[in-house]
Design a protein around this nucleic acid. Structure first.
Lengths: 349, 349
DNA sequence: TTGAAAGCGCTAACAA
DNA sequence: TTGTTAGCGCTTTCAA
């Protein structure tokens, strides 16, 4: 019943109705409403009033079919629903929405079923590829669709590319490692996504490069960014690194869920985070500030990243501004107690 | 350059091209591809192969214009970007995406600028209104659009309505209050959204009703669900409730951000949560489990809620299943230490 | 300054 | 079984 009330006429009023009501031709009505034309103010006003009176809402589909524009942008992320777990992704979306709303674009979260590629071309004017993953067939499909694409992270090797708005992880991670070094860390370990992720590659290369320069052993393990299964998947590996004759004294993990899991493992082993072993994260989250102890992290400002991607796309679509091949945004290190200072253990057997 | 490679032909191939390539008429090609028709297997195969060869992707806009279907569903939430802060909302979206992806629907996050109503009709087949708010003009516009709407929460009074998939907050909240009562709480206070929110109304009515039945004073204050400004906005009010001759001994707040702020205020006042005063939350979040002490909350299973809304909509759109006016899902209480047991203060003056 | 008509790519009548 | 034709609602030439 509720969908049947008197007010819902708007769904059916067409431009023709408005034109008839105003006593003009369809084309005139169109121009009066889009403001594109040369015409009497009286006519224009008449048309506008008729439209108002009837509650006319242009059919976006028809308009899109004619103009080739949909006034919406798409966002793609592999395993999108699960990635809502990460503050990074949801903040990035918020940033995209901020500018989409401002510019009256709708935001379409593109179905990201990686198995069954979508048969229909996406109805969007532009696409943001948050964190492109090398073997994501759907992403590749989108890259080949002819629709402008901006990636929110650099591409992994062996993947077709597009203009990128990314983050200068290198400087922030180096800063983090330097800080840990000053806090006494000499056996750092990095968990990062594998080489199918551009982010993973940058983190790994930066980490290994820094270790080499410092003459330290670079202990690097890959892990899914996915989220909550860190302990199940990498718990044993982590425990192994933390024991033995030469235990690791700094663990860097990609996201907040891995951090919490790591903290748990450490705690269960009787290690005090920030004293016995240091812990830091490559993507900050509100959670990390609330932990006991709070955990040092790199603030990627994902909301700003999302907004920057979207703004670039909108400028391109609305004004033809060319898309820069690579834009890097700064990230900043947020120091917290988890990297406070390593206290040397007494060397008792 | 990257958008100009050889593979992006798919953008321009039309059904006519496929038909010509296969040597059949457009309509035949159409039917061969959509599978709707009666025809030789040979013809069908020929058309399919031609389509494959050319890399044909149907134009969703044109199809939509003709069929009146877009194969995408819209999600609307007032102040959507800021609401990503709440685990509730982002889990709800994840649930919606789960079923959208399964059924090959795109998900459009509808621009929710409440000031400037969108001039163009939304290009979606169905709409999910997460938590309808009475004075949200855009929501009302959507309700009047003639597009099927499912709300993810009951409507506040004085708002047009639609079928609802909601949560039985009543039983869960009552359970919570009973538990707190058994833990010794006799002066409960509820912070909840105001009467513009259906949720707020249900919480308030349930709370006040229960208090009346128990013969307890029902201390009820309204607050925005928004999130991170709880302490700034309600901190003083809360502090006042916690002091005086008859201080409150249980505080129930709507979301995780309010909970953390409340915990802080209590802590700053020297109150120990779970002993001196109890604290509970109406919408659970991962955060609350990690706090010290962990905070009791009602698990609304928002992902299931989102999925249920989306499934109802998809069933309606794909199979004409009527939308039930009201579906209520159970919520469950997750007990944690913050409602452990009130320890009676010594009655010293 | 305005109107008539074509056509965006597709599907669904209706003919053949 | 297949082809022809007529639109879906809109914008955009092109004439008047």
């Amino acid at each position: 019943m509720s969908n049947d009330n008197g007010a819902d006429k708007s769904a059916k009023i067409t431009l023709g109705d408005v034109a008839r009501e105003a006593g003009v031709a369809k084309s005139t009505a169109s121009e009066a409403l889009t403001g594109s034309g040369r015409m009497t103010d009286a006519t224009r006003r008449a048309v506008r009033e008729a439209a108002q009176r009837l509650g006319y809402r242009p059919n976006a589909l028809a308009r899109g079919l004619r103009t080739g524009r949909t006034h919406s942008i798409g966002l793609h992320r592999l395993h999108a629903p699960d990635n809502f777990d990460s503050e990074y992704f949801r903040e990035l979306i918020a940033g995209v929405m901020d500018v989409a709303i401002t510019h009256d674009y709708d935001l379409s979260l593109l179905s990201s079923n990686p198995v069954r590629p979508r048969s229909v071309a996406p109805r969007v004017d532009g696409i943001i590829l948050a964190d492109p993953i090398a073997d994501d067939l759907r992403a590749i499909e989108l890259l080949n669709s002819g629709i402008p694409v901006v990636a929110g992270e650099r591409y992994p090797p062996g993947m077709p590319t597009s203009p990128v708005v990314g983050i200068a992880h290198e400087t922030a991670l180096t800063e983090l490692l330097e800080h840990a070094y000053r806090s006494g860390a000499r056996r750092p370990a990095l968990f990062a996504p594998d080489e199918k992720s551009g982010w993973g590659v940058v983190l790994r290369d930066t980490f290994l490069g820094w270790c080499r320069e410092r003459g330290l052993p670079g202990i690097h393990r890959t892990t899914a960014f996915k989220g909550r299964r860190f302990r199940e998947d990498e718990g044993d590996l982590l425990a192994a690194l933390l024991t033995g004759t030469d235990p690791v004294d700094l663990v860097v993990v990609p996201g907040e869920h891995a951090a919490l899991a790591t903290r748990e493992v450490m705690r269960d082993m009787g290690l005090q985070v920030g004293r016995d072993v240091l812990l830091a994260v490559c993507a900050d989250a509100h959670l990390l500030e609330l932990c006991e102890p709070p955990i040092t992290a790199i603030d990627l400002s994902p909301r700003r990243l999302g907004a920057t991607c979207a703004q670039a796309l909108v400028n391109h679509l609305d004004h033809g501004t060319p898309l820069a091949e690579l834009t890097l945004l700064e990230a900043h290190l947020t120091l917290r107690n988890s990297t406070e200072r390593l206290v040397q253990q007494a060397d008792t057997p």
